[in-house]
């Protein structure tokens, strides 16, 4: 009996000493600003508002654009880690919203190329730095990568324990001719994400955003 109690206490002590898993969440939203996607910015704004309403004190959020070369800090439009105090966190959310509104209003012209992989690498770096327990990369894009000449992106990427969710994946004109292109695109990204150690999901209907991140 004594041994049992001793071993239980020991186990509990060891469990207490182990590094606790963070309960914070971190979200990195990649916005495709190439071509016709600039017209979809109002939808992106809705997603951002949903995220701001869902995330809480201690959570982090960053919004970055996908352009010709997305593996850069310059592409991050806004980022914030919400304060521990709910009232301060609410102020931060208001300021964040203002920044994004300004960006959306000023974005008139899309970039010539679409570097999704670079954006994902940047997202992975940012999420790693936050140390959050739950990590999300949301891609608001048609997933058609169009790299600038000379840019190298055909190597395995690393997205450990990151949930990658493609949002509002619009069908291209060519997809209507041969829908297999669309499915192939989705398959390709799914494989890449799983190979990178992450999980994959697609949400095209933005009314079902509640499936994305559970509200606490």
């Amino acid at each position: 009996m004594k041994k049992l109690i001793l071993s239980t206490v020991l186990c509990l002590g060891l469990a207490a000493c182990s590094e606790p898993r963070s309960n914070a969440r971190a979200v990195y939203l990649l916005l495709d600003t190439s071509g016709t996607y600039t017209a979809e910015m109002d939808k992106a704004q809705k997603i951002m508002n949903y995220l701001l309403a869902t995330l809480d004190s201690g959570d982090s959020i960053a919004i970055a654009r996908i352009d010709s070369g997305s593996f850069s800090e310059k592409d991050i439009i806004a980022k914030v880690t919400f304060d521990d105090r709910p009232s301060t966190a609410n102020q931060q959310k208001r300021m964040f919203k203002d920044k994004i509104d300004e960006f959306v209003n000023n974005t008139k012209r899309g970039s010539r190329h679409t570097d999704i992989t670079g954006g994902m690498l940047q997202a992975s770096e940012y999420l790693e730095e936050t140390g959050a327990g739950e990590r999300y990369v949301l891609i608001f894009s048609d997933l058609e990568e169009d790299l600038q000449k000379g840019h190298i992106r055909d190597f395995p990427i690393s997205l450990p324990d990151i949930h990658v969710v493609a949002l509002n994946v619009t069908k291209l004109r060519s997809d209507n001719i041969d829908p297999r292109d669309y499915l192939k695109r989705l398959d390709l990204w799914e494989k890449r994400v799983y190979q990178a150690g992450g999980t994959w999901g697609v949400i095209n209907d933005l009314e079902r955003m509640d499936r994305l991140i559970a509200q606490r």
Binding site: P20, N23, A24, D56, S57, G58, D59, F82, D84, R85, P86, S87, A89
Partner: peptide
């Protein structure tokens, strides 16, 4: 519970 998070922080967890 909610105003307590304003005093002791809303992001820290014990277990």
């Amino acid at each position: 519970a909610l105003p307590m998070s304003e005093m002791v922080g809303g992001a820290s967890y014990i277990g």
